[in-house]
């Protein structure tokens, strides 16, 4: 064994490096904790905007650089790893729902005073859009499996449009409810409504970001099957969670 060691010393070895993880961590630190704190704790919107202005580009650069490095190498175990990640994600939703159920079941009356009529049709449309986007993504995956990159890109774009439409409708609804005086502080129902739909919406947004990170290299004919499958697992998960959100928060 010790001769092994001496060989190693004669030839300086090559250590693997990547700059992007560090960049991403710095971006996250500046954009989220510092941005949030300046805005909401210290009431300094300008400083908060500055934090976002520095942090968000760093995050975007890191995602782009990272994808660029990884897409050819192929981290082949990412789909099973996504399974573990989803376990963790599911637990976040479980704790939000648990807080919600606890509040609701111990409340003297529900919905509490100050709650306006919630829209009935819009959530149905949103549900349709999201479920459809899962199907269109799957269609894209099938196309990629057949080696048809062009159709894959087309279905991917359709998926992204559906996802964006979902977010658009969600924002419209929030704005509408805010207009009726139903905001974060109104009552227990508004608290869970905004927390749960907001948190789910953030997941949709992250999913769209992942798709974008896939779309850009795909346009220059670079795709990675493992990456696509992993993103799909995540997207289907976000879709399924929505079914819980819609049934518990809107229609119960």
């Amino acid at each position: 064994m010790s001769d092994h060691a001496s060989i190693q010393q004669e030839h300086p070895q090559h250590w693997e490096t990547s700059i992007w993880p560090l960049i991403m961590a710095v971006g996250i630190l500046v954009a989220l904790p510092l941005g949030f704190t300046f805005k909401f704790a210290y009431n300094q919107p300008l400083a908060a905007v500055l934090c976002l202005g520095v942090g968000v580009p760093l995050i975007i650069a890191a995602v782009a650089g990272w994808v660029n490095e990884a897409i050819t190498g192929g981290e082949g175990l990412s789909a099973p790893a996504m399974g573990w990640f989803i376990l963790a994600e599911a637990m976040i939703f479980v704790s939000f729902f648990a807080s919600y159920w606890y509040m609701r079941l111990t409340a003297p009356d529900w919905p509490p005073g100050g709650t306006p009529e919630l829209p009935v049709v819009l959530p149905l449309v949103m549900t349709t859009a999201l479920v459809a986007s899962s199907l269109t993504f799957h269609a894209g995956e099938v196309m990629l499996g057949r080696g048809d990159r062009g159709r894959f890109v087309a279905w991917l774009v359709v998926t992204m449009l559906l996802g964006s439409a979902f977010i658009g409708m969600s924002l419209y609804e929030w704005a509408h409810l805010f207009g009726q005086g139903f905001n974060f502080e109104t009552n227990a129902y508004s608290t869970v409504f905004y927390t749960i739909t907001g948190f789910h919406g953030a997941h949709v947004a992250v999913g769209l970001g992942i798709f974008l990170a896939m779309l850009v290299p795909a346009l220059s004919r670079r795709t990675n099957d493992g990456f696509v499958r992993t993103a799909g697992v995540y997207w289907h998960f976000v879709d399924i969670v929505w079914l819980f959100v819609v049934s518990q928060v809107y229609y119960w």
Partner: peptide
């Protein structure tokens, strides 16, 4: 960690929401 950290994450997030965004958890 995978099962339980997210629950802690939710808990501490909710106190910050309550304090700074006015939610009522």
């Amino acid at each position: 960690q995978l099962i339980f950290v997210p629950v802690l994450g939710s808990a501490v997030t909710l106190i910050t929401f309550d304090k700074y965004l006015g939610t009522t958890f």
